[in-house]
Amino acid sequence: MSTNNVRYYEEQQCSNQWRAFLAAFAAEFASKGEPKDLRVFMYQLGRTMGSGFNVADGSSLQALEACMNRVWSEMNWGWVELVEEADALVVAHHASPLKVAFGEEALNWSPALLEGMYAQWFETLGMDKSLRLSQRDGVFEDGQLFVFDLKKQLEEQTYFTRR
């Protein structure tokens, strides 16, 4: 785990008053469906949650990152880095409270909440419809870093257009 994440958690943690509730919620929620279905629900929850925040300065990546980080700072939910790569915009969310809040077992579905929030924010800013945000596979920094790629969605050819 990076020094920045350790320092962040020493200063800010998931509120103790919510831990028992969130642990019970995660256990019950996980028992209600497959991870794929739980991700869909969390993604939609993230979109709804994201629409409640003003992330409106898309004039530059630095301005957008600063807008997003104001939201995360107010919520004590870590911070984001936006990194432009050749084929994608990388959204790296550091020091997320999801593992602390929902438990390690929820790491296969809980990050979809962040994915939905970021997708909502990009869509509100007028994101090109051919772009799609998706989480990279793997657990990074012991579940404290979630990485998403915003890139052109490759459409799979249908049966009739394949040769």
Rank of each mutant, 00 (worst) to 15 (best):
R136L: 15
K151F: 09
G138L: 02
E155H: 15
E84W: 04
T158G: 13
G46M: 00
Q144Y: 14
A106K: 01
D57F: 10
V100E: 06
V100K: 14
A112C: 04
K152Y: 05
A95D: 00
A112R: 00
Y9S: 11
V100P: 08
L89K: 02
A86I: 11
L145V: 03
R7H: 12
L131K: 06
W18I: 10
L22F: 08
F21A: 13
A92K: 15
R70E: 06
F148I: 02
S60E: 04
M1K: 13
P111V: 01
M68S: 14
M75I: 13
L82V: 02
F140R: 02
A106N: 00
S134K: 11
R19K: 05
A112G: 02
A119P: 03
L38W: 01
A88D: 04
W109T: 06
L125E: 02
A106L: 02
R19C: 11
K151S: 07
L113M: 07
E84N: 15
Q153E: 12
D87T: 09
E28G: 13
M117C: 09
L61H: 13
W79L: 08
S110W: 02
D87Y: 07
L82H: 01
F102L: 14
R136K: 08
A101C: 09
F122A: 04
F160N: 10
Y43C: 04
V6Q: 12
A66T: 05
R19L: 12
N4T: 12
R162G: 15
A27N: 07
N69F: 04
W121A: 00
S110P: 03
L125F: 02
K129G: 07
F41P: 05
G52P: 02
S59M: 06
S31L: 10
V90R: 08
M127C: 12
L22A: 14
F29I: 05
D37Y: 10
N54K: 06
S60G: 03
L125K: 05
S134N: 15
S51Q: 09
S73A: 06
R47L: 04
E104K: 13
D137V: 11
Y8H: 09
E84P: 04
